[in-house]
């Protein structure tokens, strides 16, 4: 039984949220993880998700929005099914990160924070993702791809387009 009637989330996610609200010394600590898991399920943090999370944690909607707007991974609009995040920070920049970004732009026909017309892909230029020694690097959703070349990127995007990509959640 969910702690909340008519949860907008799947039974699994709702159960996870019930638990999250109990494990911390202070309930509110569950806010950032809840926002992430809500986004994983819906694709973004919707108005309804904000309201439900606020209710679960005894917060105002405004408190939730205030925190939501701080973190760069959280979004209030849908991204593509596969969100391609290319690092262009220093270690990647020195080993071709900008080339990879440009290649993705051309290949997908979209720019920074845009979504393809079919909703399959979105693209983001991101800051260092902690893969500097295996640069250039990118993430597709939560999955890391290292030591990239444009040829490797083509194969990776093809895999996702054909449903073979790994989806870490």
């Amino acid at each position: 039984m969910s702690a909340i009637a008519n949860s907008i989330f799947s039974p699994e996610a709702a159960a996870r949220f019930d638990k999250l609200a109990t494990i911390y010394p202070v309930k509110r600590s569950a806010l950032v993880p809840m926002l992430l898991y809500a986004q994983d399920e819906i694709g973004y943090v919707s108005e309804a998700a904000i309201q439900e999370i606020a209710k679960r944690l005894d917060l105002f909607d405004l408190d939730v929005r205030n925190v939501l707007s701080y973190y760069s991974m959280l979004r209030t609009k849908p991204a593509g099914k596969y969100n391609v995040q290319v690092c262009t920070n220093i270690s990647c920049m020195l080993r071709g990160g900008y080339e990879i970004l440009d290649h993705c732009k051309a290949k997908l026909g979209i720019g920074h924070k845009q979504v393809t017309a079919d909703g399959q892909f979105s693209l983001e230029e991101v800051e260092c993702i902690g893969a500097c020694c295996w640069a250039p690097a990118m993430q597709v959703n939560y999955d890391f791809h290292d030591d990239l070349t444009t040829i490797k990127v083509d194969a990776i995007l093809q895999d996702y387009a054909e449903g073979r990509g790994k989806d870490v959640k």
Partner: peptide
């Protein structure tokens, strides 16, 4: 949190 550009050891 490992976010300092150039750092990937904790990874």
């Amino acid at each position: 949190d490992e976010s300092e550009p150039g750092t990937c050891k904790d990874h």
